[in-house]
Design a protein around this nucleic acid. Structure first.
Lengths: 185, 185
DNA sequence: AAAAACGAACAGACCTGTCTGCATATTAAA
DNA sequence: TTTAATATGCAGACAGGTCTGTTCGTTTTT
């Protein structure tokens, strides 16, 4: 089969996000995928590599989605930031949203020396830089600060929304972000 | 010995926060504590109970500390919220800060049926209610909203501060919280 | 025919939780 | 104060299970 890698990655993604990474054993992943163990280890040299590929793919999917949506907006104006907040809310209130991936990776692997933790830090920095750049394009003076503050709110909102769904965490995080953008010079 | 329970809990706390909960086996905890396995299981009927006691104790410690600090302020004024933000920054920039406990608990045990996840939700709600009540006392109109928004910022800030220490995440989270308080009616 | 995937067993380590036998404190009685 | 009874903690083996990762032949696909 051709799309064996995607199939494995898809099953792993679901298991990692619903049961946790540590709690999802390789045996469970192969049973759920309906594949042999040797096949998994052919496409992914180790479980750690599989985890990292999961993080990478989720991240790519997010940026692809958001860049496509944002490309409709004219980038010079500050409206791009407001639209970003709406997209954020939309993203984390999606039915199958299960938390931002690097968030999970960094908490489940707190040891900074662990490759998964290390890669999670990279992804976190990438998000901050992405948001900062967006703020800079929108003409915000201290773009670095706003970028990190948006990261903080998006992270926290995603966690609370996942922990207590239906209590309006996503909407309130969006509103908090919009407030911060408005007061930014 | 009298303080056996505290000793075990202390070692478990350190291990849980530096290596992760799943990654800290009972054998490691007893080896690090210098006690026998039977002793641990005398004071804590299971590892799950030990985890929950860890969460409970950390939470109590936080509220004790913050209530003591806040008792100096006159509670009718809005200044109590501003002081809260300062205390928050102080708390998460403490050298041995390793993330808010229920945050870790909820991510490492994503299954809502798991007792640790369940208790983490309780602690999250408790924090939201605590902050909402503080906002109410301070005279904020929509205290529920501000309370949850502060929870979101504090959570997100704690995560980013832990993930990228020294990048000013704590200070920026504090400032974001203060901005939100100021614009609240 | 050649490549890929299968099922299944295996190794070696780790996991939680129980149990036993022995040493050490602490307490009570003489 | 000395002795006896009780409680507490120790080290370590053990059970039964799960973990990652490897290696078999065997079957399916190309």
């Amino acid at each position: 089969m051709k799309n064996m890698r995607e199939k494995i990655l898809g099953v792993a993604t679901t298991l990692f996000e619903t049961r946790g990474i540590h709690a999802s054993g390789v045996d469970t992943i192969i049973a759920e995928s309906g594949i042999a163990k040797a096949t998994l280890y052919k496409y992914f040299p180790s479980k750690n590599e599989l985890i990292i590929e999961y993080l990478k793919e989720k991240s790519n999917r997010f940026y692809t989605w958001i860049n496509e949506k944002l490309s409709d907006t004219k980038l010079e104006s500050r409206d791009v930031l407001f639209q970003l907040c709406d997209l954020y809310e939309q993203w984390i209130t999606t039915p199958h949203f299960n938390g931002l991936p690097f968030h999970i990776g960094s908490v489940e692997f707190p040891d900074p020396a662990h490759p998964v933790h290390h890669y999670s830090i990279e992804l976190s920095n990438e998000l901050q830089q992405y948001l900062s750049k967006l703020a800079e394009i929108a003409g915000v003076k201290d773009a670095q600060t706003l970028g990190q503050q948006l990261t903080i709110i998006f992270e926290g909102g995603a966690l609370i929304e996942r922990l207590s769904p239906g209590t309006g965490a996503a909407k309130r995080a969006r509103n908090a972000a919009i407030t911060l953008i408005k007061v930014s010079v």
